[in-house]
Each structure stands twice: as structure tokens, then as C-alpha cells.
Amino acid sequence: MDKKFTLCILQQIYEFILAEEDVNKRDSRLNAVRFFSELNLGTKSSFRYEWPYKVSGQFGNVVVIDLEGAPDFFSKDLFVNWAYDNLN
């Protein structure tokens, strides 16, 4: 299977989100939502956040991500590896 989201890509997106000015004003869940919004392969209107724990969009073969079991966004390695497992 061809993996669209390599660990390298996910780490780059993570660092991009971490560099945003308001990253510390958002809680872990909202930073995760922001992270997945950047990974959405569809249009902006195809990405949806369903409070409190689901995001949907076009992530290759994956359409819905359940954030309930996500590690803390600020635990980079745990979060990025969790995202990788959920996307691939």
C-alpha cells in the first residue's frame, strides 16, 4: 500500500502548527483539529470538526478520525506516531 502520509510529512505539518502564533492559546484537541485540517486532501468545505472528538475529511483511504484516544498534542512523538497509525 502506498502511504500518502509518511512520518516525515506528519512531522513537518506538526512543526508548522507548532510555529503558529496562537498554538498555546488552543487546547490539545483544537491543535489536533488544526493539524488534521492541514492534512485534508479535499477542499476546505470538505473538512468537518464534529465536536467533541471527530474530524472528517479526505485523508486518502480514511474519512473519519476519532480524536478521543489521541495523545496530548504537545507530546510530539506520541502524537505524530498516533496520527500516522490512524492515517495509514
Rank of each mutant, 00 (worst) to 15 (best):
F5G: 00
N88D: 08
T6W: 13
W51N: 11
K44S: 10
C8A: 14
S56M: 12
N24F: 11
F36V: 10
I9H: 10
L30A: 05
D27C: 13
L41W: 03
N88E: 12
K25W: 09
R26Y: 12
F35T: 07
N31H: 02
S45A: 06
Y14D: 03
A83W: 01
Q12D: 04
D2S: 13
D66W: 07
P71M: 12
L78M: 12
V55F: 03
P52A: 07
F79H: 04
C8F: 08
L10Q: 04
F59Q: 11
A70T: 00
I9Q: 09
E15C: 07
K76L: 07
F35W: 01
T6Y: 14
L67E: 02
D72Q: 11
S75Y: 11
N88H: 12
V62C: 02
D22C: 03
L39W: 08
F47H: 12
D22N: 15
K25F: 08
N86I: 01
L30T: 08
F79G: 05
V23A: 04
N86R: 13
L18V: 04
S56C: 11
N61M: 03
D66C: 11
V64N: 07
N61Q: 13
D2R: 14
K54C: 03
Y49G: 00
I9F: 09
E15R: 14
S37K: 12
V63K: 14
L67H: 01
E38N: 14
S56Q: 09
Q58R: 06
L18C: 10
I13N: 05
I13W: 02
S28D: 08
R26M: 11
Y84F: 15
F79C: 03
N86M: 09
F47L: 14
N81Q: 14
E50A: 05
P52M: 03
L30H: 13
F35Q: 02
L87K: 04
F16S: 14
D72K: 12
F5D: 00
R29M: 04
D72C: 14
G69N: 14
C8T: 11
V80E: 07
V80T: 02
M1Q: 06
Y49L: 03
E50Q: 07
R29A: 05
Q11D: 15
Y49P: 12
D22P: 00
S37I: 00
D85R: 15
W82D: 03
F73D: 01
L87F: 06
R34F: 01
Q12N: 13
A19D: 05
R29Q: 06
I17P: 01
N81M: 12
N86P: 03
V64P: 00
R48E: 13
C8G: 05
E21D: 15
I13K: 11
D2W: 05
I17R: 09
S28I: 08
G57K: 02
G60W: 04
N86T: 02
N24A: 11
K4R: 15
E15H: 08
A32N: 08
Y84C: 02
F16R: 10
F73M: 00
L87S: 01
K76T: 10
Q12W: 04
P52Y: 06
E20P: 05
